[in-house]
Amino acid sequence: MGNIDVKNLIVEFDIFNADNEVVSKKRVIDDISFSVNEGDFVCIIGKNGSGKSTLAKCLNGLIIPTGGDVLIYGMNTKNEEQLIDIRKNIGMAFQNPDNQIVASIVEEDVAFGMENLGFSPEEMDKRIDESLKILGIQELRFAQTSKISGGQKQKVSLAGILCMKSKILVLDEPTSMIDKNGRLDLLNKVYELNKKEKITVILISHYIEEISFADRVIVMNQGKIILDDTPKNVVLKDELLNNAGIELPYITRMAKELKSFGKKLNGNEFSVEELCQFLK
């Protein structure tokens, strides 16, 4: 049994007509199963509408499955009494950095989760200090949340999660609304959290470049898992990816072209260094 066990998960949304009657059901997640072990860094990719965001919301019980089960450390998200315990263990950061910030001052926002769990002020103070330090944003502690950048806002929400000592981090397209510099910076921090603090990371993304941070990639298309492998192996299946509407990363595309031209490359390189190996 892993950290996270998803068994035959099915999610259907009701489609309403103008009179608020259910006319049909739309299957967003179609019978998927997988498990994630402690300390893994899993990247889930898929194009818009592939069901990846819905999957993320199933993991901490924001959406309750229509069929199948989601177990977090053995606790079922269908079991309402355990929801708080599940959410303590699984922190979540969302796409729009603005819409997840509750307070006007950074430290108050970081404290929000702990306030909900009834921590003492002294304990909160200590943990805020620690988590801001880990993310390298101590100087923002008393800043106004409306005056910081999108990347910084995402870090603030990560700090809020770290404070609760969550063991699993689910990031639902955290980088889609921040610029490129901020994106790399944020992902490097997440990578560090995974390696140093041993936090299990599930990164949901539509930027294929981001899979290079992960140990394992799950590719979704139309509510189904079509690939579940290491990043290096996933990018070799370009036909499957193409069908799912996913284009390969720049370097990988270049490597693939050069390989087919006869250069000594594997066609699954991610970095400039790896790509230029063929010159040696």
Partner: peptide, 12 residues
């Protein structure tokens, strides 16, 4: 969105 974010941060 905010409701989701608050819920996932254990707000009851």
């Amino acid at each position: 969105d905010l409701a989701y974010a608050m819920e996932s941060r254990c707000y009851v």
